[in-house]
Nucleic acid binder design. Structure first.
Lengths: 341, 341
DNA sequence: GATTAGCACTCAATGCGAGAGAGTGCTAAC
DNA sequence: GTTAGCACTCTCTCGCATTGAGTGCTAATC
């Protein structure tokens, strides 16, 4: 269904106004705001049409109109032009990332912070799991008599470690040898591919140092389990409190509680994302507590796997800004990841 | 100033009631609740006295009384008996900590979570900086041509690491040797004592591998800088939303924003804590945004330094429970840290 | 046929006043 | 010193009238 130009203009005008003020928009306001050459009465007729079509709704008889979720959907699909980061904002982001960061996690933290700050919405960034990273390096390091450190490094430079207990009697060179054998078996495998069978093979090969091996294997298994988890970093959750639609403490609590459960957020996102920035408006979200929120999200590519990031706000959201920001940020961080890792 | 028994009884009765209901307490309610043998009129006279003394206040003429902050202070100082964790709760905590945890950070996370959950307040736990830990072990690990990992372990088992770039030509045994020399210079020193002069000494001793050394030293310096930071872990911030005094979104925002700035919280606490659980009621807190909140906090000893933990809630707080919980938890975790690290 | 001016109508929001209810403070009796 | 009784105070709630923004309809106009 396509709208004629005047209806589009009116719809856009109402959306812009409503997004800004959170108040129903009246016919006179539409005329004034855009300096239209038509009268309020004409606008009223058009608004009535738009309401019949489902793009607008009235909170109550004889109030102004507000865009329906369908109206927002039409707008973002057919009319919206995204608004990328301006030079100033880009500058800020680049400067932020210029400061030394030593891990992907730090990078992601900063990105999330930036997104939340520039858009005034709540941001999330998901660090991809290391499942698809490759095993690169393992070492058993004697720390003190009876204690050693299992150190595991992936090809993306992610370092994982865990303390284990070992017999007092074991020597540094023995530990080194054991580490060496681990390396041989596991070298170059994708983390996700490291099977229990590989670990069993090691168990068999190194019978004489059973205890150390067992402890080390336990440590590795536990590290691998952990590594399956994607990490979610949420920033600017309190921005939600600025939105008048959440001045009700109860609604607010539901949303914030929802955000605390990071898995719930992840469950709402598709497994894998394309190149487009994606939008979920209000009831399009599955989660009950999120039916009054909108979600704008995009993927970003690391070498191995896809990370995800996005912005959350009320349905009455500046989609143009959210989409543009994500698009710009994606480009910038993909560039950085390509260079640095 | 000491109160006679009957006044104490009435004050306590009002505090208990008010803490539970958040409503002003009337004279009849006091009589009923405690099945007192005196009439409401008598209680009224006593309440009037208590108000004159500053322990009670009236929201408006002819409403019931609520305890003043001074009233709470008197109560916690002179009358309160702390209420430690019961067997059930202790069980839960021990069970929670029985599950494997691999780092002090994980331990602390769980403690914070537990405190928030059992008390329904907001908890914080501060992990002491590793400044007073001793340097235990350092190794340079070749990861791939041109890249190495600087690994630093303290006596508390805290592992820090950082990637550095090294010349392509360097061999594993050279790296090992360099690491060895680092160890000799730094061995057993407290992190805080490692001076630039030590690092300079290393720089001099290892002239021929200038580049590697410089990189490694930079990495170490940056790790040490980081390690000066105390980490604050806050749990159950949303519990604040359940308190009727914060049903106003604006107040709520101020509090939550305050909590987001972790340093602000740390600034409110004394440098070092004694054995007692400490209480700050309402206006006793310096921070402007915290004048309607109370803070209950205690220190816990690790080998090296003192950690801190506490609970935050409205002035109308179950201090007996908060103090008791912290006291119990402190005992338990000090025991665990003694055993495990 | 589309547009517009005019006007009656609707409904949330605001303000006001009466009534209810909880609780006090005072007085006088015990 | 304690208590019963009672007038008084103040909040809270409800209903009702008022206000004002904004609509929908009708009839006139372009």
């Amino acid at each position: 269904m396509t709208l004629d130009e005047r209806k589009k203009l009116i719809l856009e005008s109402i959306i812009r106004d409503y997004v800004e003020t959170a108040e129903p928009v009246g016919s006179r306001a539409v005329v004034k705001k855009h300096g239209l050459k038509i009268s309020a009465a004409t606008v009223r007729n058009e608004m009535s049409d738009l309401e019949d079509m489902g793009y607008l709704e009235q909170p109550y008889t004889s109030a102004g109109r507000i865009p329906s979720q369908k109206g927002f959907r039409y707008y973002v699909d057919c009319m919206m032009e995204q608004e990328n980061l301006d030079d100033n904002e880009t500058e800020v982001l680049l400067h932020l990332l210029d400061d030394s960061f030593h891990e992907v996690n730090e990078l992601v933290q900063k990105i999330g912070h930036f997104l939340a700050q520039t858009t005034k919405y709540t941001s999330f960034v998901i660090v991809p799991s290391v499942r698809l990273s490759k095993f690169k390096y393992l070492q058993l390091i004697p720390i003190e008599p009876g204690k050693a450190l299992v150190l595991l490094v992936t090809d993306l430079g992610v370092v994982m470690h865990r303390n284990i207990e070992v017999p007092q009697s074991i020597t540094a060179s023995e530990l080194e040898l054991i580490g060496h054998m681990f390396n041989q078996v596991l070298a170059g495998k994708k983390i996700i591919e490291i099977q229990r069978s590989d670990l069993q093979q090691l168990r068999d090969e190194l019978k004489q140092r059973r205890k150390v091996i067992d402890r080390a294997l336990e440590a590795i298994e536990s590290l691998l389990d952990n590594s399956n988890e994607e990490r979610v970093i949420i920033s600017g959750a309190l921005n939600i409190m600025n939105e008048p639609e959440f001045k009700d403490v109860d609604k607010l609590r539901r949303i914030l509680a929802f955000l605390e459960e990071e898995t719930q957020l992840m469950d709402m996102l598709p497994e894998s994302l394309g190149d487009e920035v994606d939008i979920r408006i209000g009831r399009e979200n599955q989660a009950e507590d999120f039916k009054e929120m909108s979600l704008v999200f995009a993927g970003y590519q690391t070498q191995g796997e896809q990370g995800k990031m996005g912005l959350m706000g009320p349905v009455r959201m500046e989609y143009w800004k959210a989409v543009g920001s994500l698009d710009s940020v994606r480009e910038i961080i993909e560039e950085i990841i390509r260079k640095r890792f």
